Computed example of a mutant assay.
Amino acid sequence: MPQLDHGANALVGVMAAFGRFELQQELSGLTAVQAWNLLSPFLPLSQTDPMAFTELLCHGVTPAGGFAAYGASRALAELVGLSFDTPAAQAVLDGGIAFLREAGVPPMRVRPYEWDRWLDTGGNVESWLPVRPPPPPERPGITPLRPAETRLVAKLGAEQDSNRVFISRDGTDFVAIVDARYSDEDPTRARWVWHRASTLYLLYLQVGRSLQTPPHWVAAELEAYVPLPAPRF
C-alpha cells in the first residue's frame, strides 16, 4: 500500500477532521483555509499518481468508517475528481455513502454525485433511510387555526435571526410562510409563501416532507409529520 509521512492513525484522524468539516462546517472548529491545509500534503501524490492516492484512502482510511470514511470520499472528489471509475475509488465513495446513511443524513444533504452512485447501485429515496409514517388523516393531531392566527411551527437554526416557518390562512387555503433575511448582507426580513394546501393536514404533510429532518426547533404537532429523525453525529 502506498505510504505518506502520515502514520495510519494520523491519516485516519486527518480524514476524520476533514469529513467533519465537510458535513458540519459550523461545528468542526475549522475554517475553510484550515480544512484545505489538511488536504494540501496529499496534493502532489493525488496529481502525480491518483491511483496510488486512491488505494491509500481505500485501504488506509475507508475501513475505519465514520467521519474518516466520509472525509476520504470527499478528499478523493476534491483532489482527483468525480469519475470514481475504478473499484478502489468506488469503494471509497461507497464508504462515504454508508456513513451518511448510518448517521441519518437526509437526502437533501447528499451531494448529487453521491446520490447518483446510490441510485446506480440500486438504491432509491425509499431505501435511503426508514421513514416514519405521518399521523392518519382521521387523527391528525393538529390544533385548528383561530381566525386571523399566524402560528410559528419551526425555527430552522439556533441563531436569533434564523429562518422561521409560520402557518396561516389565505382565503380558503392554508399556507406555510417562510420568514427570513434577504441575504447575509441585507438583514431586512421578508416573508413568502412556501407551501399551500386546502387543509391543515395536507399542509403539514408538505412542510414535514420538505423539512425531511427536525430543524433546530419544531412544534410537536408538526414534528409528527417530519419523516426522518435528526442526524446522529
Rank of each mutant, 00 (worst) to 15 (best):
R20E: 12
Q3K: 15
T31A: 10
A16L: 01
G19P: 05
M15Y: 06
A10C: 01
Q24E: 13
E22L: 03
T31H: 10
N9R: 14
Q3L: 14
G19C: 13
A16N: 02
E22R: 10
F18M: 03
G13A: 08
V33H: 08
E22A: 15
V14M: 02
G13Q: 11
S28T: 11
A17C: 09
D5F: 09
H6S: 15
G7F: 00
A16R: 02
A35M: 06
G29C: 08
Q34K: 12
V33R: 13
Q34P: 07
A32C: 04
D5C: 04
Q25E: 04
N9V: 08
H6V: 08
Q3N: 12
S28H: 06
H6P: 00
G13D: 08
A16F: 00
H6K: 08
L23E: 14
A8G: 06
A16Q: 01
L11F: 05
Q25D: 12
G29R: 14
Q24G: 03
G29S: 12
L27K: 08
Q24L: 14
F18G: 00
D5T: 10
N9Q: 15
H6D: 15
F18E: 01
R20I: 06
A8F: 03
A17P: 02
D5Q: 13
R20S: 10
L23V: 09
A16M: 07
